[in-house]
Design a binder for these strands. Structure first.
Lengths: 220, 220
DNA sequence: CATAATATTTAGTTTAATCTAAATAATTGT
DNA sequence: ACAATTATTTAGATTAAACTAAATATTATG
Protein backbone atom coordinates (compact mmCIF):
# COMPACT_ATOMS: atom_id res chain seq x y z
CA UNK A 1 0.00 0.00 0.00
CA UNK A 2 1.59 3.28 -1.12
CA UNK A 3 1.16 6.68 0.52
CA UNK A 4 -0.84 7.81 -2.46
CA UNK A 5 -3.19 4.85 -2.32
CA UNK A 6 -3.75 5.43 1.38
CA UNK A 7 -4.52 9.09 0.72
CA UNK A 8 -7.09 8.19 -1.89
CA UNK A 9 -8.83 5.75 0.44
CA UNK A 10 -8.86 8.33 3.19
CA UNK A 11 -10.33 10.99 0.91
CA UNK A 12 -12.98 8.63 -0.44
CA UNK A 13 -13.89 7.59 3.08
CA UNK A 14 -14.34 11.20 4.18
CA UNK A 15 -16.43 12.03 1.12
CA UNK A 16 -18.49 8.89 1.52
CA UNK A 17 -19.51 9.50 5.12
CA UNK A 18 -21.83 12.38 4.23
CA UNK A 19 -24.56 10.64 2.26
CA UNK A 20 -23.64 7.00 1.80
CA UNK A 21 -23.97 7.23 -1.98
CA UNK A 22 -21.12 6.58 -4.35
CA UNK A 23 -18.39 9.19 -4.58
CA UNK A 24 -17.68 10.90 -7.89
CA UNK A 25 -14.27 11.13 -9.50
CA UNK A 26 -14.54 14.91 -9.61
CA UNK A 27 -15.32 15.13 -5.92
CA UNK A 28 -12.23 13.07 -5.19
CA UNK A 29 -10.14 15.23 -7.50
CA UNK A 30 -11.38 18.35 -5.69
CA UNK A 31 -10.73 16.91 -2.26
CA UNK A 32 -7.24 15.83 -3.17
CA UNK A 33 -6.19 18.77 -5.27
CA UNK A 34 -5.50 16.65 -8.29
CA UNK A 35 -7.01 16.13 -11.74
CA UNK A 36 -10.02 13.93 -12.48
CA UNK A 37 -8.01 11.92 -14.97
CA UNK A 38 -5.47 11.05 -12.29
CA UNK A 39 -8.33 9.92 -10.08
CA UNK A 40 -9.68 7.64 -12.78
CA UNK A 41 -6.31 5.95 -13.07
CA UNK A 42 -5.93 5.41 -9.35
CA UNK A 43 -9.50 4.32 -8.88
CA UNK A 44 -8.98 1.59 -11.46
CA UNK A 45 -5.97 0.36 -9.61
CA UNK A 46 -7.71 0.37 -6.24
CA UNK A 47 -10.65 -1.40 -7.79
CA UNK A 48 -8.40 -4.15 -9.14
CA UNK A 49 -6.98 -4.53 -5.64
CA UNK A 50 -10.47 -4.99 -4.29
CA UNK A 51 -10.36 -1.89 -2.12
CA UNK A 52 -13.33 -0.25 -3.75
CA UNK A 53 -16.15 -0.82 -6.22
CA UNK A 54 -16.00 1.14 -9.43
CA UNK A 55 -18.17 1.22 -12.51
CA UNK A 56 -17.36 3.69 -15.27
CA UNK A 57 -19.18 7.00 -14.97
CA UNK A 58 -20.81 5.87 -11.73
CA UNK A 59 -18.37 6.85 -9.04
CA UNK A 60 -16.86 4.62 -6.40
CA UNK A 61 -17.66 3.08 -3.04
CA UNK A 62 -15.16 1.64 -0.61
CA UNK A 63 -15.29 -2.10 -0.10
CA UNK A 64 -14.96 -3.70 3.31
CA UNK A 65 -11.21 -3.94 3.09
CA UNK A 66 -11.00 -0.43 1.62
CA UNK A 67 -12.96 0.93 4.56
CA UNK A 68 -10.82 -0.95 7.04
CA UNK A 69 -7.67 0.40 5.44
CA UNK A 70 -9.00 3.96 5.42
CA UNK A 71 -9.95 3.70 9.08
CA UNK A 72 -6.54 2.34 9.98
CA UNK A 73 -4.92 5.39 8.37
CA UNK A 74 -7.36 7.77 10.07
CA UNK A 75 -6.68 6.05 13.38
CA UNK A 76 -2.96 6.60 12.96
CA UNK A 77 -3.45 10.21 11.93
CA UNK A 78 -5.54 11.03 14.97
CA UNK A 79 -3.36 9.19 17.46
CA UNK A 80 -0.30 11.01 16.16
CA UNK A 81 -2.16 14.30 16.50
CA UNK A 82 -2.84 13.53 20.14
CA UNK A 83 0.82 12.76 20.64
CA UNK A 84 1.93 16.00 19.04
CA UNK A 85 -0.39 18.09 21.20
CA UNK A 86 -0.20 16.17 24.48
CA UNK A 87 3.46 15.24 24.53
CA UNK A 88 5.22 17.74 22.30
CA UNK A 89 3.02 20.73 23.09
CA UNK A 90 2.11 21.61 19.56
CA UNK A 91 -1.02 23.69 19.24
CA UNK A 92 -4.03 22.14 17.58
CA UNK A 93 -3.61 24.21 14.44
CA UNK A 94 -0.08 22.92 13.77
CA UNK A 95 -0.56 19.18 13.91
CA UNK A 96 -2.49 18.27 10.80
CA UNK A 97 0.34 18.67 8.32
CA UNK A 98 2.79 16.63 10.37
CA UNK A 99 0.21 13.94 11.05
CA UNK A 100 -0.39 13.70 7.31
CA UNK A 101 3.14 12.35 7.09
CA UNK A 102 3.17 10.29 10.26
CA UNK A 103 -0.04 8.47 9.35
CA UNK A 104 1.85 6.56 6.66
CA UNK A 105 4.47 5.01 8.94
CA UNK A 106 4.09 1.28 8.65
CA UNK A 107 4.06 -0.51 12.00
CA UNK A 108 1.08 -1.88 13.85
CA UNK A 109 3.20 -2.30 16.92
CA UNK A 110 4.21 1.35 16.84
CA UNK A 111 0.69 2.72 16.76
CA UNK A 112 -0.51 0.31 19.44
CA UNK A 113 2.29 1.30 21.77
CA UNK A 114 1.77 4.96 21.05
CA UNK A 115 -1.92 4.53 21.79
CA UNK A 116 -1.09 2.92 25.15
CA UNK A 117 1.51 5.60 25.90
CA UNK A 118 -1.19 8.24 25.44
CA UNK A 119 -3.68 6.39 27.64
CA UNK A 120 -5.94 5.17 24.81
CA UNK A 121 -7.41 8.54 23.86
CA UNK A 122 -10.94 8.51 22.42
CA UNK A 123 -10.70 11.76 20.45
CA UNK A 124 -8.09 13.77 18.60
CA UNK A 125 -7.34 17.41 19.45
CA UNK A 126 -10.13 18.59 17.15
CA UNK A 127 -12.69 16.36 18.81
CA UNK A 128 -12.82 13.75 16.08
CA UNK A 129 -13.22 10.18 17.32
CA UNK A 130 -10.28 7.78 17.08
CA UNK A 131 -11.27 4.52 15.38
CA UNK A 132 -10.52 1.41 17.41
CA UNK A 133 -7.87 -1.07 16.32
CA UNK A 134 -10.54 -3.21 14.67
CA UNK A 135 -12.02 -0.31 12.74
CA UNK A 136 -14.99 0.75 14.82
CA UNK A 137 -15.85 4.42 15.22
CA UNK A 138 -18.26 5.45 17.94
CA UNK A 139 -20.62 8.00 16.43
CA UNK A 140 -21.66 10.62 18.91
CA UNK A 141 -24.81 12.68 19.09
CA UNK A 142 -23.01 15.95 18.56
CA UNK A 143 -24.75 18.67 16.55
CA UNK A 144 -23.63 21.79 14.82
CA UNK A 145 -24.13 24.92 16.88
CA UNK A 146 -26.32 26.29 14.09
CA UNK A 147 -28.84 23.53 14.78
CA UNK A 148 -29.31 24.40 18.41
CA UNK A 149 -32.38 26.38 19.51
CA UNK A 150 -32.49 29.49 21.67
CA UNK A 151 -31.85 28.78 25.36
CA UNK A 152 -30.34 25.39 24.65
CA UNK A 153 -27.03 24.61 26.29
CA UNK A 154 -24.23 22.43 25.03
CA UNK A 155 -20.61 21.48 25.51
CA UNK A 156 -18.31 22.27 22.65
CA UNK A 157 -16.91 18.86 21.63
CA UNK A 158 -15.42 19.18 18.14
CA UNK A 159 -14.74 21.42 15.17
CA UNK A 160 -15.92 20.68 11.67
CA UNK A 161 -13.38 22.85 9.87
CA UNK A 162 -9.95 22.19 11.34
CA UNK A 163 -8.03 24.62 9.18
CA UNK A 164 -5.37 26.62 11.01
CA UNK A 165 -7.18 29.88 10.33
CA UNK A 166 -10.39 28.72 12.02
CA UNK A 167 -8.53 27.13 14.92
CA UNK A 168 -6.49 30.27 15.47
CA UNK A 169 -9.69 32.28 15.46
CA UNK A 170 -11.07 30.08 18.22
CA UNK A 171 -7.88 30.42 20.27
CA UNK A 172 -7.93 34.18 19.88
CA UNK A 173 -11.52 34.28 21.04
CA UNK A 174 -10.96 31.85 23.88
CA UNK A 175 -13.30 29.21 22.56
CA UNK A 176 -12.04 25.73 23.36
CA UNK A 177 -13.32 22.18 23.36
CA UNK A 178 -14.99 21.46 26.68
CA UNK A 179 -16.43 24.95 27.04
CA UNK A 180 -20.12 25.26 27.78
CA UNK A 181 -22.15 27.38 25.37
CA UNK A 182 -25.71 28.66 25.73
CA UNK A 183 -27.61 30.10 22.78
CA UNK A 184 -29.00 33.45 23.89
CA UNK A 185 -30.35 34.71 20.59
CA UNK A 186 -30.34 33.96 16.88
CA UNK A 187 -30.39 36.65 14.21
CA UNK A 188 -32.85 35.81 11.45
CA UNK A 189 -31.13 37.96 8.89
CA UNK A 190 -27.63 36.46 8.77
CA UNK A 191 -27.95 33.44 11.04
CA UNK A 192 -25.45 34.88 13.51
CA UNK A 193 -25.70 33.94 17.18
CA UNK A 194 -25.54 35.63 20.53
CA UNK A 195 -24.01 33.11 22.90
CA UNK A 196 -22.95 32.81 26.49
CA UNK A 197 -19.65 31.01 26.83
CA UNK A 198 -18.05 30.43 30.26
CA UNK A 199 -19.02 33.63 32.11
CA UNK A 200 -18.99 35.93 29.03
CA UNK A 201 -21.35 36.79 26.21
CA UNK A 202 -20.29 37.06 22.60
CA UNK A 203 -21.60 37.32 19.08
CA UNK A 204 -20.53 34.79 16.46
CA UNK A 205 -21.28 34.58 12.77
CA UNK A 206 -23.20 31.75 11.16
CA UNK A 207 -19.98 30.75 9.46
CA UNK A 208 -18.36 30.15 12.85
CA UNK A 209 -21.37 28.44 14.37
CA UNK A 210 -21.65 26.07 11.45
CA UNK A 211 -18.18 24.76 12.17
CA UNK A 212 -18.58 24.10 15.87
CA UNK A 213 -20.02 20.85 17.18
CA UNK A 214 -21.73 20.76 20.55
CA UNK A 215 -23.18 18.01 22.64
CA UNK A 216 -26.46 19.17 24.12
CA UNK A 217 -26.85 19.24 27.88
CA UNK A 218 -29.97 17.60 29.31
CA UNK A 219 -32.68 19.84 30.74
CA UNK A 220 -31.90 23.13 29.06
CA UNK B 1 14.51 16.12 -1.17
CA UNK B 2 12.98 12.67 -1.70
CA UNK B 3 13.25 9.69 0.65
CA UNK B 4 15.46 7.97 -1.85
CA UNK B 5 17.81 10.93 -2.15
CA UNK B 6 18.08 11.11 1.62
CA UNK B 7 18.86 7.42 1.80
CA UNK B 8 21.63 7.75 -0.74
CA UNK B 9 23.20 10.64 1.15
CA UNK B 10 23.02 8.69 4.37
CA UNK B 11 24.63 5.62 2.82
CA UNK B 12 27.39 7.66 1.22
CA UNK B 13 28.04 9.42 4.51
CA UNK B 14 28.37 6.12 6.36
CA UNK B 15 30.68 4.67 3.70
CA UNK B 16 32.75 7.82 3.59
CA UNK B 17 33.46 7.96 7.31
CA UNK B 18 35.80 4.99 7.18
CA UNK B 19 38.71 6.28 5.14
CA UNK B 20 37.83 9.77 3.89
CA UNK B 21 38.45 8.79 0.28
CA UNK B 22 35.81 8.93 -2.40
CA UNK B 23 33.10 6.29 -2.32
CA UNK B 24 32.62 3.92 -5.25
CA UNK B 25 29.32 3.36 -7.03
CA UNK B 26 29.57 -0.35 -6.35
CA UNK B 27 30.07 0.19 -2.64
CA UNK B 28 26.94 2.34 -2.58
CA UNK B 29 25.01 -0.28 -4.53
CA UNK B 30 26.09 -2.94 -2.04
CA UNK B 31 25.21 -0.83 0.97
CA UNK B 32 21.80 0.03 -0.42
CA UNK B 33 20.87 -3.30 -1.96
CA UNK B 34 20.44 -1.84 -5.39
CA UNK B 35 22.19 -2.02 -8.75
CA UNK B 36 25.28 -0.03 -9.70
CA UNK B 37 23.48 1.43 -12.69
CA UNK B 38 20.76 2.83 -10.44
CA UNK B 39 23.45 4.39 -8.31
CA UNK B 40 25.04 6.07 -11.30
CA UNK B 41 21.72 7.67 -12.18
CA UNK B 42 21.05 8.94 -8.69
CA UNK B 43 24.59 10.12 -8.20
CA UNK B 44 24.29 12.27 -11.31
CA UNK B 45 21.16 13.85 -9.98
CA UNK B 46 22.64 14.54 -6.56
CA UNK B 47 25.70 15.96 -8.22
CA UNK B 48 23.59 18.38 -10.26
CA UNK B 49 21.92 19.47 -7.04
CA UNK B 50 25.32 20.21 -5.54
CA UNK B 51 25.00 17.61 -2.80
CA UNK B 52 28.08 15.68 -3.83
CA UNK B 53 31.07 15.72 -6.14
CA UNK B 54 31.14 13.16 -8.88
CA UNK B 55 33.52 12.44 -11.72
CA UNK B 56 32.90 9.45 -13.95
CA UNK B 57 34.68 6.31 -12.84
CA UNK B 58 36.06 8.10 -9.81
CA UNK B 59 33.42 7.67 -7.16
CA UNK B 60 31.73 10.39 -5.15
CA UNK B 61 32.31 12.61 -2.14
CA UNK B 62 29.64 14.49 -0.24
CA UNK B 63 29.76 18.27 -0.52
CA UNK B 64 29.20 20.55 2.46
CA UNK B 65 25.47 20.70 1.92
CA UNK B 66 25.36 16.97 1.20
CA UNK B 67 27.08 16.25 4.49
CA UNK B 68 24.76 18.59 6.36
CA UNK B 69 21.73 16.91 4.84
CA UNK B 70 23.03 13.43 5.66
CA UNK B 71 23.70 14.45 9.25
CA UNK B 72 20.24 15.94 9.58
CA UNK B 73 18.73 12.61 8.52
CA UNK B 74 21.00 10.66 10.87
CA UNK B 75 20.09 13.03 13.68
CA UNK B 76 16.41 12.38 13.10
CA UNK B 77 16.95 8.62 12.89
CA UNK B 78 18.79 8.48 16.20
CA UNK B 79 16.44 10.78 18.07
CA UNK B 80 13.47 8.69 16.95
CA UNK B 81 15.29 5.56 18.11
CA UNK B 82 15.69 7.08 21.55
CA UNK B 83 12.00 7.91 21.59
CA UNK B 84 10.99 4.40 20.63
CA UNK B 85 13.12 2.84 23.36
CA UNK B 86 12.68 5.40 26.13
CA UNK B 87 9.03 6.29 25.71
CA UNK B 88 7.44 3.35 23.92
CA UNK B 89 9.55 0.62 25.51
CA UNK B 90 10.71 -0.99 22.30
CA UNK B 91 13.86 -3.06 22.68
CA UNK B 92 17.01 -1.84 20.95
CA UNK B 93 16.82 -4.53 18.30
CA UNK B 94 13.36 -3.45 17.11
CA UNK B 95 13.84 0.25 16.48
CA UNK B 96 16.02 0.51 13.41
CA UNK B 97 13.38 -0.42 10.85
CA UNK B 98 10.80 1.96 12.24
CA UNK B 99 13.32 4.78 12.53
CA UNK B 100 14.21 4.22 8.87
CA UNK B 101 10.73 5.47 8.10
CA UNK B 102 10.46 8.15 10.76
CA UNK B 103 13.75 9.76 9.74
CA UNK B 104 12.09 11.06 6.58
CA UNK B 105 9.33 13.03 8.28
CA UNK B 106 9.76 16.63 7.24
CA UNK B 107 9.55 19.07 10.15
CA UNK B 108 12.40 20.82 11.90
CA UNK B 109 10.03 21.86 14.63
CA UNK B 110 9.00 18.26 15.24
CA UNK B 111 12.49 16.93 15.71
CA UNK B 112 13.52 19.85 17.93
CA UNK B 113 10.53 19.35 20.19
CA UNK B 114 11.07 15.62 20.29
CA UNK B 115 14.70 16.23 21.20
CA UNK B 116 13.63 18.50 24.07
CA UNK B 117 10.94 16.01 25.17
CA UNK B 118 13.66 13.36 25.47
CA UNK B 119 16.00 15.65 27.42
CA UNK B 120 18.46 16.27 24.59
CA UNK B 121 19.98 12.79 24.49
CA UNK B 122 23.59 12.56 23.34
CA UNK B 123 23.49 8.97 22.09
CA UNK B 124 21.02 6.60 20.51
CA UNK B 125 20.18 3.19 22.05
CA UNK B 126 23.15 1.60 20.27
CA UNK B 127 25.59 4.15 21.63
CA UNK B 128 25.93 6.14 18.41
CA UNK B 129 26.27 9.88 18.91
CA UNK B 130 23.38 12.14 17.93
CA UNK B 131 24.53 14.98 15.67
CA UNK B 132 23.64 18.44 16.94
CA UNK B 133 21.12 20.61 15.14
CA UNK B 134 23.92 22.39 13.31
CA UNK B 135 25.50 19.15 12.13
CA UNK B 136 28.30 18.57 14.60
CA UNK B 137 29.10 15.08 15.85
CA UNK B 138 31.25 14.69 18.92
CA UNK B 139 33.72 11.92 18.20
CA UNK B 140 34.54 9.89 21.26
CA UNK B 141 37.65 7.95 22.15
CA UNK B 142 35.86 4.63 22.18
CA UNK B 143 37.75 1.56 20.97
CA UNK B 144 36.75 -1.89 19.86
CA UNK B 145 37.08 -4.48 22.57
CA UNK B 146 39.48 -6.40 20.33
CA UNK B 147 41.94 -3.52 20.64
CA UNK B 148 42.10 -3.60 24.41
CA UNK B 149 45.03 -5.28 26.17
CA UNK B 150 44.94 -7.85 28.95
CA UNK B 151 43.99 -6.37 32.30
CA UNK B 152 42.57 -3.21 30.78
CA UNK B 153 39.15 -2.15 31.94
CA UNK B 154 36.47 -0.33 29.98
CA UNK B 155 32.85 0.65 29.94
CA UNK B 156 30.79 -0.74 27.11
CA UNK B 157 29.52 2.35 25.28
CA UNK B 158 28.33 1.29 21.83
CA UNK B 159 27.88 -1.53 19.36
CA UNK B 160 29.34 -1.55 15.88
CA UNK B 161 26.95 -4.07 14.37
CA UNK B 162 23.43 -3.16 15.39
CA UNK B 163 21.66 -6.00 13.64
CA UNK B 164 18.84 -7.59 15.62
CA UNK B 165 20.70 -10.90 15.81
CA UNK B 166 23.75 -9.37 17.46
CA UNK B 167 21.67 -7.23 19.80
CA UNK B 168 19.56 -10.21 20.83
CA UNK B 169 22.74 -12.15 21.52
CA UNK B 170 23.90 -9.40 23.85
CA UNK B 171 20.56 -9.32 25.64
CA UNK B 172 20.60 -13.08 26.08
CA UNK B 173 24.09 -12.90 27.55
CA UNK B 174 23.29 -9.92 29.74
CA UNK B 175 25.76 -7.59 28.10
CA UNK B 176 24.46 -4.03 28.01
CA UNK B 177 25.76 -0.56 27.37
CA UNK B 178 27.15 0.88 30.59
CA UNK B 179 28.52 -2.45 31.80
CA UNK B 180 32.13 -2.55 32.92
CA UNK B 181 34.34 -5.11 31.21
CA UNK B 182 37.83 -6.25 32.15
CA UNK B 183 39.98 -8.26 29.75
CA UNK B 184 41.24 -11.28 31.66
CA UNK B 185 42.86 -13.19 28.85
CA UNK B 186 43.19 -13.27 25.07
CA UNK B 187 43.42 -16.44 23.04
CA UNK B 188 46.15 -16.18 20.40
CA UNK B 189 44.63 -18.85 18.20
CA UNK B 190 41.16 -17.45 17.47
CA UNK B 191 41.29 -14.01 19.06
CA UNK B 192 38.60 -14.92 21.54
CA UNK B 193 38.54 -13.22 24.94
CA UNK B 194 38.07 -14.16 28.56
CA UNK B 195 36.35 -11.20 30.19
CA UNK B 196 35.00 -10.16 33.52
CA UNK B 197 31.69 -8.38 33.19
CA UNK B 198 29.84 -7.08 36.28
CA UNK B 199 30.59 -9.83 38.81
CA UNK B 200 30.80 -12.70 36.31
CA UNK B 201 33.39 -14.13 33.96
CA UNK B 202 32.65 -15.17 30.42
CA UNK B 203 34.25 -16.15 27.18
CA UNK B 204 33.42 -14.26 23.98
CA UNK B 205 34.48 -14.82 20.39
CA UNK B 206 36.58 -12.39 18.40
CA UNK B 207 33.51 -11.79 16.24
CA UNK B 208 31.63 -10.52 19.27
CA UNK B 209 34.51 -8.48 20.65
CA UNK B 210 35.06 -6.80 17.32
CA UNK B 211 31.53 -5.40 17.43
CA UNK B 212 31.63 -3.96 20.92
CA UNK B 213 32.98 -0.50 21.63
CA UNK B 214 34.39 0.31 25.04
CA UNK B 215 35.66 3.48 26.62
CA UNK B 216 38.80 2.69 28.59
CA UNK B 217 38.85 3.43 32.30
CA UNK B 218 41.86 5.38 33.61
CA UNK B 219 44.38 3.54 35.75
CA UNK B 220 43.72 -0.01 34.74
C1' DC C 1 -36.26 15.96 -26.46
C1' DA C 2 -32.44 17.96 -28.47
C1' DT C 3 -28.69 20.56 -27.42
C1' DA C 4 -25.63 22.85 -24.24
C1' DA C 5 -22.99 22.29 -20.28
C1' DT C 6 -20.66 19.33 -17.26
C1' DA C 7 -18.46 15.11 -15.81
C1' DT C 8 -15.63 11.35 -16.86
C1' DT C 9 -12.61 8.61 -19.39
C1' DT C 10 -9.00 7.69 -22.84
C1' DA C 11 -4.71 8.44 -25.05
C1' DG C 12 -0.43 9.99 -24.91
C1' DT C 13 3.44 12.48 -22.18
C1' DT C 14 6.36 13.40 -18.04
C1' DT C 15 9.25 12.54 -13.95
C1' DA C 16 11.38 9.64 -10.44
C1' DA C 17 13.35 5.53 -9.43
C1' DT C 18 14.37 1.41 -10.57
C1' DC C 19 15.99 -2.64 -13.62
C1' DT C 20 18.64 -5.59 -17.49
C1' DA C 21 21.86 -6.04 -20.96
C1' DA C 22 25.44 -4.19 -23.49
C1' DA C 23 29.35 -1.20 -23.89
C1' DT C 24 33.34 0.86 -22.07
C1' DA C 25 36.84 2.05 -18.64
C1' DA C 26 39.98 0.67 -14.97
C1' DT C 27 42.57 -2.68 -12.56
C1' DT C 28 45.00 -7.01 -11.87
C1' DG C 29 47.90 -10.86 -12.73
C1' DT C 30 51.17 -13.20 -15.21
C1' DA D 1 52.42 -4.84 -21.29
C1' DC D 2 48.54 -7.34 -22.56
C1' DA D 3 44.85 -10.12 -21.59
C1' DA D 4 41.44 -11.18 -18.27
C1' DT D 5 38.71 -9.65 -14.72
C1' DT D 6 36.14 -6.31 -12.43
C1' DA D 7 33.95 -1.83 -12.05
C1' DT D 8 31.26 1.59 -14.07
C1' DT D 9 28.48 3.73 -17.33
C1' DT D 10 25.12 3.89 -21.15
C1' DA D 11 20.99 2.66 -23.50
C1' DG D 12 16.62 1.21 -23.36
C1' DA D 13 12.57 -0.70 -20.66
C1' DT D 14 9.38 -0.70 -16.59
C1' DT D 15 6.28 0.97 -12.88
C1' DA D 16 3.87 4.49 -10.24
C1' DA D 17 1.82 8.68 -10.17
C1' DA D 18 1.02 12.57 -12.06
C1' DC D 19 -0.36 15.73 -16.09
C1' DT D 20 -2.77 17.78 -20.75
C1' DA D 21 -5.75 17.49 -24.45
C1' DA D 22 -9.13 15.15 -26.80
C1' DA D 23 -13.01 12.06 -26.88
C1' DT D 24 -17.13 10.40 -24.94
C1' DA D 25 -20.81 9.90 -21.67
C1' DT D 26 -24.17 12.04 -18.52
C1' DT D 27 -27.07 15.65 -16.89
C1' DA D 28 -29.44 19.82 -17.17
C1' DT D 29 -31.96 23.37 -19.73
C1' DG D 30 -34.71 25.73 -22.93
Amino acid sequence: MTHSEENYLKAIFHLGKMGSESVSTNAIADEMDTKPSSVTDMVKKLSEKGLLHYKKYQGVQLSGSGTRTALAVIRKHRIWEVFLVEKLNFSWDEVHEIAEQLEHIKSEELIDRLDAHLGFPKHDPHGDPIPSRDGKVKLSDKRLLTEAAINERGICVAVKDSSPSFLKFLDKNKIALGDQITILDKEEFDGSLEIQIKQRKMHISNEIASNLYVKMVEGS
